[in-house]
């Protein structure tokens, strides 16, 4: 059997895939956080809860309305994103002129309310969301067994990341967003409806989280707390990548997933902390993050 540094190839590749899949979630979530932070300057602590809402919406939509996975993949981000826009319009906008810390507190409070409410109705144990039939099973690649759903998650998440990158870096709307991030007052003076741009941006960031939630539903137990445990890691990823670039958020997300996955192979005890160790190192060497712009 082929060995890589004393580990069977199949185990190595298996963990690598697992790491990439986790990394894809980190990338999607940190991307949304970075987009929101860029324009609203709010650290969106509700991001994990919005990811969880995405997974729950998929689960409940299937259970009560018979909405299948593929439809959920489109509908849920729209619904949860729309809900996010309402949050921005009626709550976040009211405190936009205050210190950014208030935005953090408000979103954190909202996250607790969402989680608490769902715990009240569904408990914390979590429910299973059945993998859609077309994506069940797996492929034998010879050196490892690749579950189809994980491969799909990787492809779907990366496609969404690239779509987001394209929207922001290559379209006119994206140019508004980038410019608004730098100087929103001047954008208003050019006639751009910045408040609307802010609402749409927040909604888009939330929709990304909800999309990740739907992708995650068949993979992890759908429970009200599934987001809060993930969010801490995602914040570490954002700190490592820096707030400067969209591509940076994507690459850092994937990279951290892989590092975490490989740590599970070679030194499992550290797998939960390795990302935070990297974060400490990065903060010491490049305080603005790997892809961030030095202030």
């Amino acid at each position: 059997m082929t060995m890589i540094f004393g580990v069977p190839l199949a185990v190595f590749m298996g963990q690598l895939t697992l790491g990439l899949v986790n990394g894809a979630f980190y990338a999607l979530l940190s991307l949304g956080l970075a987009v929101i932070f860029g324009l609203l300057k709010i650290v969106n602590f509700a991001h994990g809860a919005q990811y969880m809402l995405g997974a729950f919406a998929a689960l409940l939509g299937f259970r009560y309305l018979g909405i299948n996975y593929w439809l959920a993949l489109i509908l849920v981000p729209l619904v949860v994103g729309g809900f996010g826009m309402l949050m921005e319009r009626f709550l976040l906008r009211r405190i936009a002129h205050l210190d950014h810390l208030y935005g953090l507190l408000l979103t954190f409070g909202l996250a607790l309310i969402f989680e608490g409410t769902l715990v009240n109705f569904f408990g914390v144990s979590g429910a299973r969301y059945t993998t859609p039939e077309a994506l069940q099973g797996g492929m034998n690649l010879g050196f490892m067994f690749l579950p189809t759903y994980r491969a799909w998650v990787l492809v779907a998440a990366l496609t969404m990341c690239l779509f987001t990158w394209f929207m922001i870096e290559r379209t006119r709307l994206g140019a508004y967003l980038r410019a608004g991030t730098e100087n929103s007052q001047l954008m208003q003076a050019f006639g751009v409806n910045v408040p609307l741009l802010i609402t749409l941006t927040y909604g888009f960031g939330v929709a990304l989280a909800a999309f990740a939630g739907v992708l995650a539903a068949p993979l992890y137990p759908v429970s009200p707390t599934m987001g809060s445990s993930l969010l801490i890691v995602v914040f570490a990823v954002v700190v490592i990548g820096g707030m400067g670039s969209i591509l940076g958020a994507i690459l850092t997300g994937l990279g951290m997933g892989v590092i975490e996955g490989l740590t599970k192979v070679y030194y499992p005890e550290a797998s939960n902390t390795v990302i935070f160790l990297v974060m400490i190192l990065v903060l010491m060497l490049r305080p603005a993050g790997l892809f961030g712009k030095e202030a």
Binding site: R178, A179, F190, G191, V192
Partner: peptide, 15 residues
């Protein structure tokens, strides 16, 4: 002038 936009994008920015 916006740093995150190139000259052409800056020029096309104002609606």
């Amino acid at each position: 002038i916006f740093a995150s936009l190139d000259v052409h994008e800056n020029l096309l920015l104002p609606p």
